[in-house]
């Protein structure tokens, strides 16, 4: 049985597989969790922290993405480390310095015990091509956004098993989609597990999921190419680069409006004003806290947003 490496945000999964281990994105269990965390700012980090501390997540070590992304994770990751878990801290460079990121990847490789199976790079790369095809399918109204999102969000860890994951990708049904408006979902992923289904119930077809698209967009076949690609991880770098990337995708995917999901107590919430200033689309900002089925306040906002785009275009 391969050792399982918990990851708290995007860590090149191809590298973890190449090192003979299986990644587990600890965020992926949060939306279905009913755990009430002891102390919290952001529920995402607080819940995976408590799940690890309570023995509720079967991992052998943890890689905390701290630099360039989530500072709550830096603290909660240290709580996990102090409990005795083998923990490594991975830092993205804000200035997109390729050499710095390569040195980070080298340290990570050492923590993971070294590269043992280079074939995993091409295998994961092939899976990402399938993911991009799936992404295009929903852009072309040939797949439900909720089905596609369920698959794409797992590209951070390939569901822990590339073979099983490939079957999962192949099982996403192809179907004509009817809707009233095309929307983009930017920001961290919603903590509500039924978000996309709820949006669909109001005629909103989500044609762009910002973070899962990052999982697909980045990759590589060795440390050099990984460093050159992952230095562009938009959530960890300057927001002006992220805005340009989003603008291109909004245009390419022909969206009518943008939903910016924010998480209570997450620093990314502060980016809302920047998006509103620089993205020339109707924008709906919503915020979630604890995982649960979509609350009425969210439904009201999604319904009203759909009406505004349909009734008063």
């Amino acid at each position: 049985m391969k050792e399982t490496v918990g990851i708290t945000a995007l860590v090149p999964p191809e590298l973890i597989y190449a090192c003979g281990k299986r990644p587990m994105d600890v965020n992926n269990v949060v939306p279905e969790s009913s755990l009430s965390p002891g102390s919290k700012l952001c529920a995402w980090t607080a819940i995976w922290r408590d799940m690890i501390l309570n023995g509720g997540l079967d991992i052998d070590s943890l890689v905390v993405v701290a630099g360039g992304d989530c500072h709550n994770a830096l603290v909660d990751g240290q709580k996990v480390e102090l409990s005795g878990m083998a923990t490594h801290y991975f830092f993205y460079p804000f200035d997109r310095d390729t050499d710095y990121l390569r040195s980070q990847l080298e340290k990570l490789t050492r923590f993971l015990g070294g590269i043992k199976d280079e074939r995993m790079f091409s295998l994961i790369s092939d899976l990402k091509l399938k993911g991009r095809a799936l992404d295009e399918l929903r852009v072309n109204d040939r797949a439900r956004a909720s089905d596609v999102f369920s698959a794409l969000i797992s590209f951070s860890d390939m569901a822990g098993d590339p073979d099983v994951f490939e079957k999962m990708l192949n099982s996403v049904p192809e179907t004509d989609v009817e809707y009233s408006s095309r929307v983009a979902l930017i920001g961290v992923p919603p903590i509500y597990p039924d978000f996309h289904e709820t949006a669909e119930s109001f005629g909103l077809h989500v044609v762009y999921d910002e973070l899962p698209y990052e999982f697909l967009r980045l990759g590589g076949s060795d440390l050099d190419s990984l460093a050159r690609s992952y230095r562009d991880y938009s959530f960890a770098g300057p927001i002006k680069n992220r805005v340009e990337l989003i603008k291109n995708e909004l245009q390419r995917r022909r969206v009518d409006g943008v939903i910016h999901y924010t998480q209570f107590a997450c620093h990314h919430t502060l980016e809302d004003e920047i998006f509103r200033e620089h993205l020339d689309y109707p924008i709906l900002t919503v915020q979630g806290d604890l995982p649960r089925p979509s609350p009425e306040q969210l439904k009201l906002r999604l319904e009203a947003f759909a009406e505004m785009m349909e009734v008063m275009p």
């Binding site: 509103r276 109707p282 924008i283 709906l284 900002t285 306040q297 009201l300 906002r301 009203a304 947003f305 505004m308 785009m309 008063m312 275009p313």
Partner: peptide
């Protein structure tokens, strides 16, 4: 804001 079809709600 009717100029760009956006709205905000304070209910928390």
């Amino acid at each position: 804001d009717l100029s760009n079809n956006t709205f905000v709600i304070n209910d928390k």
